[in-house]
């Protein structure tokens, strides 16, 4: 029943696609790979804020393919608030070699293909992408989504059914004894999220 709706939704979505070149997003994923991705933005409100950079890395079996990373900086009209600079450390001057939004999103789509997307609070990153994708192609990201904080929650709640599960990113890293790679940027965050994902799916 559920997959029926999913199919229906996908077919509906496909019918809205404005550009035939991106039909591959709807093809079945045959690569047995995943893509972890993260965005850095000017703020936390998808309606008002803009994407500064997108970072992504592929995962295959038990490996994070750092040899195939994706990183793009995006030209922006909005002023970058000094508060967000503190977090992602992208200064206006770092964006000099940045790409136009359209080009950046397109190259991102070519990178992910129809692979399932993995992320931490993925909903936010996806809605940031969708904000540009809808006017561009008439669709939202059709890929399967995997939320690591959800995987983490499911695993932990089994141990403490009534407990409060602390879902903060740093807490999860600490809990699983994963290295914190320091500086917040989209690729680093994607790699760390990838480690959590592997730990949750590959660990015993």
């Amino acid at each position: 029943m559920f997959s029926f709706f999913k199919n229906l939704q996908r077919n509906y979505s496909l019918s809205k696609l404005k550009n035939e070149n991106f039909k591959f997003l709807f093809e079945p994923n045959t690569s047995d790979e995943y893509v972890v991705f993260d965005t850095e933005t000017t703020g936390l409100n998808p309606k008002e804020d803009d994407i500064l950079s997108i970072g992504a890395v592929k995962i295959k079996n038990n490996k994070i393919l750092t040899s195939e990373t994706f990183e793009v900086f995006i030209k922006n009209t909005q002023k970058i608030s000094s508060k967000s600079i503190e977090i992602h450390q992208i200064r206006p001057c770092d964006l000099e070699n940045a790409k136009e939004m359209q080009e950046a999103i397109e190259s991102f789509l070519y990178f992910i293909g129809s692979r399932p997307l993995v992320g931490y609070y993925l909903e936010f990153d996806v809605s940031m992408i969708n904000k540009y994708l809808i006017p561009m192609l008439g669709i939202k990201l059709p890929n399967k989504m995997i939320e690591v904080s959800e995987l983490y929650y499911d695993k932990e709640i089994a141990f403490i059914p009534q407990g409060n599960i602390d879902l903060r990113f740093d807490t999860i890293l600490k809990k699983y004894n994963l290295p914190n790679m320091g500086a917040h940027n989209s690729v680093n965050d994607a790699v760390m999220t990838g480690m959590i994902f592997l730990k949750l799916t590959q660990g015993k």
């Binding site: 038990n62 490996k63 994070i64 393919l65 750092t66 040899s67 790699v191 990838g194 480690m195 592997l198 730990k199 590959q202 660990g203 015993k204």
Partner: peptide, 12 residues
């Protein structure tokens, strides 16, 4: 750097 991957292996 372009050839290095990160891998995860569980205990044992």
């Amino acid at each position: 750097m372009q050839k290095i991957d990160i891998a995860y292996y569980p205990k044992e």
